[in-house]
Design a protein around this nucleic acid. Structure first.
Lengths: 341, 341
DNA sequence: CTGAAAGCGCTAACAG
DNA sequence: CTGTTAGCGCTTTCAG
């Protein structure tokens, strides 16, 4: 019933088939298809045509077996559900070029056992390299020195400085945020953020505080650590309004907190941005674009981080040596919530 | 500098190495490691120990080359960023069992060209099967009949009934939602939902309307199609309150819309759930758990959908025949927003 | 310029 | 019970 000559199950065409059809040997066919060795132009065309005709596609397994390279990389994430892994993955896939390099996805969900299981499976499969995605910017345990392939750590850096790590510049992001707010003429600035145990929270808070002080101001009530949630944003804003009714800006550690702040302000009939400017962090558009008013936020450029990670990995696979933590700049996205009066 | 005998680069140990160390032939070693053929118990132990000692791990590429099975599957998604792909992926990964089957992840981003590119790359890599994730429950074009491996379509079904598709039961979900609301004694029920062009919107709306009518009631103002956004939820709720101040329940087509509705109700000092009950759809916990009050919602059990997809694919790879669209029940998660007075 | 032969790491007959 | 042989699909010497 098929167009095939024989059995019925459509076997994948092999190089042998191409060679036969072109009337040459397998090795010549191979050379022709790979532009290697000297092959008579006429022969080459015949081979190419034959390959085309039977839709020959080289078997990467055979190739990999021989070359030791598989054209695959492993992507180990600890938290697929979190909003940070996805854009990074997208960026990485992008940089590898559609279909050029295939990506094995593994989610360890914060479980060390599962992680090592996946790691083993990936190494078994002879991936050419690994990208490890952290779920927070806290440093994580290095996979160690005896992984036989290059590893690039993204978002959450490795605790071993000999590894290659790529992280967003939360410190710089904090500076941006503070400068932006100060630039709009605000003087009574508060900062509400998430758990103090997070490096990201401390990085942002620290640089915000410094920048504010450098401008001769002071963070109202110091840094308000708490949780990365809307409800903390609400609770803290309520308290803030009570104790410091004169605040004119709230910089939030993430967009959820900012959303909570906005809600409370609107309910209290405090004008945003006229009375109080509000900004978030992460630029999670589901939140920033749908809030009233739209929310100014700091974007960590995660896609670019992913792209860069892929590039670094690529170079490393190619033999280039490098190490250390590389930091990528954030980008401020200004919206109505911090507009000038 | 290494523990190795020779070169320096740690070559992956091969079966040959194991055989040598154990003082047997490669084939005997193979048999011993795979429990195949009769091998002298003593020999087997020697081989196993040797393998252990040099940390031998069979090369799946070689195995795959021989067996035609690679132990890999491809996951083709059209929208990684959307909230639906992730839980399904997680579920699928789960079902395959950590590390047993490896998953190639490809995001086509709704681009047909990119999709076929990825598809080709996956087939080249000789994946044993494919899972195709839709970004909406709208039917999508089948990949066709001449894909050489089994394909399972998830969330968005294939338009070819001969394919295997798995979708959430949005119709049933609508019934659940309506019955739940009616069960709390509500009589003036409205329904706000997303774009009418979405099958999901029509499925849910249709069954909600039917269920309401079966109870001798009527949807207030018919079905309010619009957008899947908070702002539409707000706009529509404002209008609804104006035209039908006597409504006592709003069933929303997704959680964002519901969130918008809640916000407007709170601002107007309309009590939820006392005056008006509100519920959402999707059970996106970032929204449902952080809203005031917490939001009742219909959960599509996406993780289970993913798990099931993996199982179906597994069976299909194993040779089991099946086809058609299989529908998975939703689950209602009741929270404060629809609690009884 | 072309092809025969060897081999990547592994499994599967088939003799011993 | 064990080893020899062949071969999966491909690349790569190395003679012709």
């Amino acid at each position: 019933m098929r167009d095939d000559t024989d059995e019925g199950r459509a076997r994948n065409p092999t190089l042998k088939d191409v060679a036969q059809l072109a009337g040459v040997s397998v090795s010549t066919a191979s050379k022709a298809l790979n532009d290697r060795g000297d092959v008579h132009p006429g022969t080459r065309v015949r081979v190419l045509e034959a390959a085309e005709r039977i839709r020959f596609r080289p078997n990467p397994l055979a190739k990999g077996l021989l070359a030791g390279r598989t054209g695959t990389v492993g992507l180990l994430t600890d938290d697929l559900v979190g909003r940070f892994s996805i854009p990074i993955m997208t960026g990485a896939e992008d940089a590898f070029g559609t279909g050029k390099m295939s990506v094995f996805l593994c989610d360890a969900r914060g479980d060390a056992i599962r992680m090592s299981y996946h790691l083993q499976a990936l190494l078994d499969r002879r991936v050419d390299g690994l990208i490890v995605l952290g779920s927070s910017t806290d440093a994580r345990a290095s996979l160690g020195r005896d992984i036989p392939v290059p590893v690039v750590y993204v978002y959450g850096p490795s605790d071993d400085p000999r590894d290659i790590s790529l992280v967003p510049d939360n410190v710089g992001g904090g500076v941006m945020a503070a400068e932006h707010i100060i630039g709009t003429g605000r003087r009574r600035i508060a900062h509400i953020t998430g758990e103090q145990s997070f490096v990201a929270a401390r990085d942002r808070a620290g640089s915000i505080e410094q920048t504010v002080e450098a401008a001769g101001l002071e963070l109202v009530g110091g840094v308000h650590y708490g949780h990365w949630s809307e409800s903390w944003g609400r609770t803290c804003t309520v308290a803030l309004l009570e104790q410091h009714p004169d605040i004119d800006a709230i910089i939030c550690g993430n967009d959820q907190i900012a959303r909570g702040a906005l809600d409370v302000l609107r309910e209290r009939r405090v004008g945003v941005p006229d009375d109080v400017a509000v900004m978030g962090f992460d630029n999670w558009e589901t939140l920033t674009l749908e809030s009233r008013p739209q929310l100014t936020s700091v974007d960590m450029n995660l896609e670019m981080l992913g792209r860069l990670a892929a590039q670094r990995l690529f170079s490393a696979i190619g033999g280039e040596q490098s190490s250390g933590i590389e930091t990528l700049p954030c980008r401020l996205v200004a919206r109505a919530s911090t507009a000038l009066g």
